[in-house]
C-alpha cells in the first residue's frame, strides 16, 4: 500500500484540508481566479468549500496577531473614507464564519443591531453597525480578533482600485503601511513578469467588474522557514538571515510550503473590493506524507525561473529543498529501495 491509500482516514485536517496549489509541474503567474466557494478535491481530501476557514491554529494565530498589533499598530489601517467598507467587512466576515462553523458561531442581525457569539473564544457581543463605540476596537481590527484571515479593502475610483484599508499581520514579504493608498498596479510593482504580460491590468479590470453575487478566489505560494506567520518587510531583520543559514538536514522540519488562499469579494453596501489572505503552511516532512505533493512541489521548485525564485526569496536555498526532497522520495520509493539493496 502506498501512503496515499493509507492516509485519508488518518491524516490530520491540516493535511487533508491543505490547499495544495500546483495543478502541474511548472508554475507561472496567471490571473488564476475561480468562482468561490467551491470544494476543490485533492489526493487526500480537499478545501475551498467555505470562504472563511478555521483550523487548528486558530487560537495561536489570533494570539500572535494581537501581539503583533500591540507592538506595531500600523498593521491595521483604515483610511477615513473606508469606514463604511470596514463595517461591510465585519458583517461579511462574521457571516462567513457562521456559515463555515455553525457548530460554534451564531450571527443575528436586527436592523443595525448585531449579536455575535463565538464559542471558540467565549465571545458574546452586541454592537450597532456604524457606531464604533459599541465595539472594543475599530471595526477592521476587531474583526481580526475573530478570524485568521488577513483583510485588505480596496476603493474603486477613477478607473482603478486603491488599497485604502487593511488588517495585515501575516504578510509574506510586503508591508501594508508601505502599500497603503497605492493603486492595484502600483502595489504589484515589484512582481516580475506580470507587467510585460498584461496580467495585472486584466486582473484589475476583472476585479472592477466583480458584483456582490459571486465571490472569486486564487492561490499564491512561497516557502517560509519555520512556521513563521509574520514574515513582513518590517520584521526582515528577524527572519531574513534564516535563508542564508539553513542547512540540508534542517529542510524537513524548518522549510514550509506556504499557501495563501485569497478570496475576492465585492462588498454589498460600500461597493469596496475585499481581499482575504489566508495563509496555511506545511513543513516538508509532512508534505512528504503525500508523495504526489512532494514530487510535484519538487518539480515546481526546481523548474521555477530564477527571477521568480529571487522575487519569492527562495533563490538562495531552493536547491537544498530539491536535494532533500529527492533523497526522501527515493528512500520512500519501494522500487528504488529494493534496487539499492
Amino acid at each position: 500500500m502506498t501512503p496515499a491509500d493509507l492516509l485519508p482516514q488518518t491524516l490530520p485536517a491540516r493535511i487533508a484540508r491543505f490547499p495544495f496549489p500546483f495543478p502541474r509541474d511548472e508554475y507561472r503567474y496567471t490571473a488564476n481566479v475561480q468562482p468561490a466557494p467551491a470544494f476543490e478535491p485533492t489526493v487526500v481530501g480537499g478545501w475551498g468549500d467555505t470562504v472563511v476557514e478555521v483550523d487548528e491554529h486558530y487560537l495561536a494565530e489570533l494570539e500572535e496577531r494581537a501581539e503583533i498589533l500591540a507592538e506595531d499598530p500600523e498593521r491595521s489601517i483604515t483610511l477615513p473614507h473606508m469606514k463604511a467598507a470596514a463595517w461591510d467587512a465585519v458583517l461579511y466576515t462574521l457571516q462567513g464564519f457562521a456559515d463555515a462553523r455553525p457548530d460554534v458561531a451564531r450571527l443575528s442581525i436586527d436592523g443595525d443591531r448585531v449579536r455575535w457569539e463565538n464559542d471558540l473564544l467565549n465571545t458574546a457581543i452586541e454592537f450597532v453597525v456604524g457606531d464604533e463605540s459599541t465595539l472594543p476596537l475599530d471595526p477592521l481590527t476587531w474583526v481580526g480578533t475573530q478570524v485568521q484571515e488577513d483583510i485588505c479593502l480596496l476603493d474603486q475610483r477613477e478607473g482603478h482600485l486603491w488599497l485604502d484599508a487593511g488588517l495585515v499581520t501575516f504578510a509574506a514579504d510586503w508591508s501594508l503601511a508601505f502599500d497603503i493608498g497605492m493603486s492595484f498596479l502600483e502595489f504589484h510593482g515589484p512582481v516580475p513578469r506580470v507587467h510585460e504580460a498584461g496580467v495585472m491590468p486584466a486582473a484589475e479590470q476583472f476585479l472592477m467588474r466583480l458584483t456582490p453575487e459571486q465571490a472569486y478566489r486564487r492561490t499564491n505560494w512561497t516557502l517560509t522557514i519555520d512556521r513563521r506567520m509574520d514574515v513582513s518587510t518590517e520584521k526582515y531583520d528577524v527572519w531574513g538571515k534564516d535563508r542564508r543559514l539553513l542547512t540540508l538536514e534542517e529542510v524537513g522540519e524548518r522549510v514550509h510550503l506556504r499557501v495563501e488562499v485569497q478570496h475576492l469579494v465585492r462588498l454589498p453596501v460600500s461597493g469596496a473590493v475585499m481581499f482575504y489572505i489566508r495563509s496555511s503552511m506545511l513543513p516538508m516532512h509532512e508534505l512528504l506524507l503525500v508523495p504526489e505533493w512532494a514530487a510535484r512541489a519538487r518539480a515546481v521548485i526546481e523548474e521555477l525561473p530564477e527571477d521568480m525564485a529571487d522575487y519569492k526569496g527562495i533563490a538562495r536555498y531552493r536547491h537544498l529543498v530539491v536535494q532533500w526532497l529527492d533523497a526522501q522520495l527515493e528512500a520512500d520509493d519501494p522500487q528504488s529501495a529494493a534496487e539499492a539493496a
Binding site: T30, A31, N32, V33, Q34, P35, A202, Q205, F206, Y216
Partner: peptide, 24 residues
C-alpha cells in the same frame, strides 16, 4: 478556471473563421 475571460486556461487555437473577442 475563471469562466470570466481572465485566467487564460480555456485558450483555443482558431484555424478558420473570425472570433468575436469578449475576454480580458
Amino acid at each position: 478556471l475563471c469562466r470570466q475571460g481572465v485566467c487564460g486556461e480555456c485558450k483555443v487555437r482558431v484555424l478558420a473563421g473570425t472570433p468575436a473577442h469578449h475576454d480580458l
